[in-house]
């Protein structure tokens, strides 16, 4: 699978990811900073429900990673996914939202079955050294273009 977001120059390999031992969505492991991860326990992009893809914001030391420019997306921008059958699926951005990681609407992000969605996730906000994580998560909500 591949993910393309022309508006911010993303063209990345999609790895299948699951959950960590502590219950969080895993991140890509083969090329952690350049690949993105599709949540394999949820729907595939294009299927009914909420498909989810995550990617790193930055690398250790702070250099940009694959989703560094995710925050630049605007409603109306196009996101494309090439599936394993060679078919392209196109989605349109309809909202961006920032959440503290423990206060995110997980049902909406992972389990909204009212349509065909693809939600993109990365980190945002300041780095909190004591927690070894950023203050926020960015979720870009997109809807399948029919």
């Amino acid at each position: 699978m591949r993910l393309r977001i022309p508006a911010i120059g993303v063209d990345a390999i999609v790895e299948a990811v699951g959950v960590t031992a502590s219950g969080e969505l895993e991140v890509p492991v083969r090329q952690p900073w350049d690949d993105v991860g599709w949540y394999r326990l949820g729907p595939r992009p294009g299927e009914r429900g909420s498909a989810v893809i995550d990617g790193h914001l930055d690398r250790p030391g702070g250099a940009p990673a694959v989703f560094w420019r995710l925050r630049e997306l605007k409603p109306g921008d196009v996101v494309q996914v090439l599936d394993t059958q060679g078919e392209w699926w196109s989605f349109r951005v309809h909202a961006l939202a920032y959440y503290p990681p423990t206060q995110a609407p997980l049902q909406q992000i992972f389990a909204d079955t009212s349509g065909h969605y693809l939600n993109l996730i990365t980190c945002a906000g300041d780095w909190i050294a004591s927690e070894h994580q950023t203050q926020l998560r960015l979720v870009v909500y997109t809807t399948l273009i029919t």
């Binding site: 219950g23 930055d58 690398r59």
Partner: peptide
């Protein structure tokens, strides 16, 4: 039965770390 929802991933990195190759990490700093 419904699928459970995972927590959000940790997709950020320590900006003070210097464990990646210099070519990648060095440009902005």
């Amino acid at each position: 039965q419904v699928a459970g929802t995972p927590g959000l991933p940790d997709t950020g990195s320590d900006p003070a770390a210097s464990t990646t190759p210099p070519v990648q990490v060095g440009v902005p700093l």
